[in-house]
């Protein structure tokens, strides 16, 4: 389980999704690929966690019960504008994607997505930040 294939990345990711099953499996898989993963189940939790700790990247769902992902993104960009955000959602409306990108999201992915694709985007985002 600890055998890391991408040792060069030790990025700390915050996973925000209200689906426990999804959070659980994604955490496992990303950790296996060498990410440090913190997961939260709601937008408010995510914002609270962001105030306490710095993350390298945020993977954000759009449609959540307590707070809409777009709203989380807007606040996030005011308190920590430097953290890249990748939107990963099952609600694949193009408006939401355009809104998210306009608010400064790094990229937009639709569930279910290939893990490799997600990691690819995450790596890019981390590298982009490092510049």
């Amino acid at each position: 389980m600890a055998s890391n294939q991408d040792q060069d990345i030790q990025a700390h990711a915050l996973l925000v999704d209200d689906e426990p099953g999804f959070i659980e499996i994604m955490t496992k898989r990303l950790k296996r690929r060498g990410f440090k993963v913190t997961s939260v189940l709601s937008g408010t939790e995510a914002l609270r966690s962001l105030r306490r700790q710095d993350y390298d990247i945020v993977v954000l769902d759009l449609k959540m019960e307590d707070m809409d992902g777009i709203e989380v993104l807007r606040i996030l960009k005011t308190i920590a504008p430097e953290i890249p955000v990748i939107i990963l959602t099952g609600h694949g409306s193009e408006e939401a994607a355009v809104d998210g990108l306009a608010l400064g999201a790094f990229d937009y992915l639709m569930k279910p997505c290939d893990l490799e694709e997600l990691i690819n985007v995450m790596q890019k985002a981390v590298l982009d930040r490092g510049k």
Binding site: M1, S3, E19, G21, F22, I25, M26, K28, R29, R32, K63, T89, G90, H91, G92, S93, M110, K111, P112, C113, L115
Partner: peptide, 28 residues
């Protein structure tokens, strides 16, 4: 449709990820 899409996509995503996880483990 939009409701179904969202509701279906999440469980399907989990299924796909779980399958991926099994693939990961199998490789070990």
């Amino acid at each position: 449709a939009s409701g179904i899409a969202h509701e279906i996509n999440n469980p399907v995503a989990i299924m796909v990820e779980e399958a991926g996880w099994m693939q990961d483990l199998l490789e070990d």
